Deep mutational scan, measured.
Amino acid sequence: TQSIHIEKSDTAADTYGFSLSSVEEDGIRRLYVNSVKETGLASKKGLKAGDEILEINNRAADALNSSMLKDFLSQPSLGLLVRT
């Protein structure tokens, strides 16, 4: 696993530069990185398409609903625990 911390203040970007997809496997919801913008903040921090997001801001990914995800992604900083 890899811990990634991203700050939007690093650039004038209003997004982190990646998209997520939610997949249900064996009754457990998993979050995967769908795509990463080549010039985006997430790419600079090493996030890659296909990575599994285990935690966002110290909250287990399978416990997050879509409104919580939207809220986290609109925050000025983001902490991710990722399995590559």
Rank of each mutant, 00 (worst) to 15 (best):
E7R: 13
E25R: 11
A63D: 14
A13E: 15
L64S: 03
A42N: 01
S3T: 14
A42S: 04
S21L: 10
A61H: 07
G50D: 03
S21G: 06
V23T: 11
K44I: 10
I53E: 01
K37A: 14
G79H: 13
V82Q: 05
L73R: 05
A60R: 14
E55A: 09
L73H: 06
G27R: 02
S66R: 08
D62L: 07
L69K: 03
F72K: 03
R30E: 02
G17D: 06
K37V: 15
L73S: 06
D14K: 07
D62I: 11
K45L: 06
L54W: 02
N65K: 08
H5Q: 05
G40C: 06
V23C: 11
L31H: 06
Q75C: 09
E55K: 12
G27H: 05
K48S: 08
E7W: 08
E25Y: 08
A49N: 11
T39N: 14
T39V: 07
G46H: 08
I56H: 00
L81H: 06
L41S: 08
G46T: 03
D71G: 09
S74T: 14
L47R: 01
N57V: 00
T1K: 07
G17C: 02
N58C: 11
N65V: 02
G17W: 01
A42L: 04
V36R: 01
S77M: 04
D26V: 06
D14A: 09
S22I: 12
D62G: 12
D14F: 06
E25P: 00
A42D: 01
L80T: 03
L31P: 05
K70S: 12
Y16T: 02
L54I: 10
T39M: 13
I28Y: 10
K70N: 09
S9M: 03
L78E: 06
V33D: 03
L31V: 10
E52H: 03
S66W: 13
K70H: 14
S3A: 10
E25Q: 12
A12D: 14
H5E: 05
A61R: 00
N57P: 00
Y16P: 01
G79Q: 15
S67F: 13
L54M: 09
I4N: 01
V33A: 06
R30N: 01
G17M: 03
E55L: 04
G27T: 03
E7H: 09
N65C: 10
T39A: 13
E38K: 14
L64V: 14
Q75L: 09
R29K: 15
E38L: 08
D26F: 07
L31T: 07
E38I: 04
D62V: 09
E55W: 03
T15I: 04
K8L: 13
A13N: 13
K48W: 00
G17A: 02
L47V: 07
A60N: 15
V33G: 02
Q75V: 05
T11L: 10
Y32G: 02
V23R: 10
S22K: 08
I53L: 05
Y16D: 04
E24Q: 11
K70E: 13
S9H: 01
R83W: 03
A60L: 08
I56Y: 00
D14T: 10
A42G: 05
N65P: 10
A42R: 01
D10C: 07
Y16H: 04
T15P: 06
V33H: 00
S21C: 09
S21T: 14
A12G: 14
L31K: 00
L64W: 02
S9Q: 10
L47T: 03
D62P: 10
Y32E: 05
A12C: 12
D62M: 09
S43Q: 12
K37Q: 14
R30S: 03
G50C: 02
D62R: 11
S21D: 11
S21W: 04
R83H: 07
